[in-house]
């Protein structure tokens, strides 16, 4: 698919003028008119009803709004909708057609209890998939490094790291393992990188 990047018009912040943008969201072409100040996350949630992407802060700190923009994970609260013009956006809703047919990473989060309240989960999934696209077999430390801009307050992160490891293995073609099997033999014991 050919994507055309158009720079956002300069000097429009003070006006109420709307700007026409074209996005490909979860594989579908979407034409919108947006105010220049509008955030991508608000367009996704409010205009396109893609509420799987969450908002947890106002300082780009929590990462729960993470989506893919042209294949790379971005915090959609820190991207203006006009900046995404011409780009492909992928949200958590695109990972599985329904809850019966989960993406291998989602299935791993279910089996390995990689979530509690679930509010950080969509962002966590999108960040992890970005990592796995670049590195299909990361160490625990590399996973922790990749998700350290996605805050979780419930889990202590261990079950998230384990879920990503197990999901990555399935995405590499290995058979899925149960929680019990995984706990008997963790996949990676590499320590977290120095901080």
């Amino acid at each position: 698919m050919e994507l055309i990047h158009r720079p956002a018009s300069a000097g429009t912040a003070a006006t109420e003028a709307r700007i026409a943008i074209d996005l490909v969201v979860n594989g579908e072409r979407v034409a919108l008119e947006v105010e220049p100040r509008r955030l991508l996350v608000d367009v996704l949630r409010e205009d396109l009803d893609l509420t799987g992407t969450k908002v947890g802060c106002d300082t780009s700190s929590c990462g729960t709004c993470t989506v893919h923009l042209d294949g790379r994970a971005v915090k959609s609260c820190t991207v203006l909708a006009v900046q995404a013009d011409g780009s492909a956006v992928r949200t958590v809703e695109d990972l599985a057609p329904d809850s019966e047919h989960l993406h291998p990473l989602q299935a791993a989060f279910v089996e390995h209890h990689g979530l509690q309240c679930g509010f950080c989960t969509p962002g966590m999934l999108m960040t992890a998939l970005d990592l796995l696209a670049r590195d299909p077999d990361p160490s625990d430390g590399e996973i922790r490094h990749a998700i350290h801009g996605n805050l979780c307050r419930c889990t202590g992160y261990q079950s998230i790291v384990a879920s990503i490891q197990e999901g990555a293995a399935v995405m590499r073609g290995e058979p899925p393992r149960t929680w019990t099997e995984a706990h008997a033999a963790p996949r990676s014991t590499a320590p977290a990188p120095d901080r």
Binding site: T51, K54, T91, L95, A96, H183
Partner: peptide, 26 residues
């Protein structure tokens, strides 16, 4: 070994993982 095997999975897990779960602002 096997202690955890067979205990139910998080009931609302799939909905939370697919974005289908509705939090108040959704």
């Amino acid at each position: 070994p096997g202690r955890a095997a067979g205990f139910p999975l998080r009931r609302e897990g799939p909905a939370k993982l697919t974005g289908a779960a509705k939090y108040t602002d959704d």
